[in-house]
Simulated scan of single mutants.
Amino acid sequence: MATHKKTRGGGDDGQICTDAQGSIYRIGFARPSKYNGFSPSMLQQLAEAYTELESNEQYRVGVIYGIGDHFCAGLDLSKTKLDTDLFPPDCVDPFNLRPPYRRKPLLAAVQGVCYTLGVELALAADIVVAAQNTRFSQLEVKRGVMAFGGATIRMVERAGWGNAMRYLLTGDEWDAETSLKYGFVQEIVGTGQQLERTMELAEIIACQAPLAVQAMIESARIAQVEGQATAVLNFQTQMSRLRASEDYQEGINSFLERRDGVFTGR
């Protein structure tokens, strides 16, 4: 059951709706008349919601999703100035391209239209569940601009140069099966089941030791951004920090007692 629900913004410019289900913080995009295309106020609200996820220790996992038939049609170009600084510098970056990097796991449930900004927000998440009907496109070249939210980096990393350029340079659509093949999404489910399945995965993650989950993400990010050797050098520091936690002892006890661990994040 949701412990609280909050709506940020509203009116013709849309809004970001947040609610907590236990330790899972859900962030919903709500501008259905524009296929959840983002206005400037929604960008501000989204960054604030990501910052709340990071700063509130009640939350262990975040989930982003689109309210209605579509995930996100991208930026509303009639209202938004195309600038590389879409998000306030004092907030967590939803693209996860600049420090402070997001520590907590984030999952995305996508469906219907998932274009440009929507693709880049999904690529910046840790796990993506796509509905069978999801249609993806990174179509900036059709508008005289380039993708600057991470697609030129993450699509190449996962799909390889040629496969990424096939879509980055044409602006063509691709489907959920193609996204799964290239590693842009991790699961495909029936249309309408994407949020339910994403919440199932989020609940599994939320039951694990939060500090260990965050250390996994941190290590993988260091390897990706700073290189494998740097990540290896950090193993001992990370393990020492985890061994000093209460959750480490709980993990050992739960193993010896043959039960599931009950973790506190301390």
Rank of each mutant, 00 (worst) to 15 (best):
N234M: 12
G62K: 06
A131Q: 12
N96G: 06
P105L: 08
P88C: 12
E52W: 00
A231Y: 12
Q249N: 06
S219R: 10
R197G: 13
I127T: 14
F87E: 11
A30Q: 10
E52N: 01
D12V: 05
T198L: 02
S219E: 06
E57W: 01
G149S: 06
Y25D: 11
F29V: 03
E203N: 06
N234K: 14
T170Y: 03
Q208T: 07
Y35C: 11
Q15G: 06
D260E: 07
Y59H: 13
G37D: 13
R135N: 15
L82I: 15
N133V: 07
A151Y: 05
K6V: 11
G112K: 07
D172V: 03
V145T: 15
I24P: 05
Q236Y: 13
Q186T: 08
E203V: 00
V262H: 10
R197Q: 13
T170V: 04
I188L: 09
G37Y: 07
E250H: 02
R243M: 15
P105E: 04
K6Q: 13
Y50G: 03
P89D: 13
K142N: 14
E250M: 02
Q236T: 12
K34C: 02
E177W: 05
F263V: 09
G112Q: 04
Y101A: 01
E187P: 07
I217W: 05
V156E: 08
G265E: 10
A231I: 14
C91P: 01
K34E: 07
Q186R: 13
H70T: 02
G149M: 09
K34Q: 08
L106Y: 07
T264Q: 05
I205R: 05
W174L: 03
C17Q: 14
P100E: 02
G251R: 08
T3R: 06
S137G: 15
R102F: 04
G192V: 04
A176S: 15
P105N: 11
V213D: 05
Q111A: 06
Q21M: 01
D247W: 01
T170A: 06
A151D: 08
M216P: 00
I24F: 00
K6T: 14
V119G: 00
E187Q: 12
F255K: 05
Q15A: 14
V232F: 09
E140F: 14
P94F: 02
S23G: 05
Q249V: 04
Q194V: 01
I153V: 07
P100C: 06
D19E: 07
L195R: 09
H4W: 03
T178N: 04
L195M: 10
A125L: 09
W174R: 03
G74T: 11
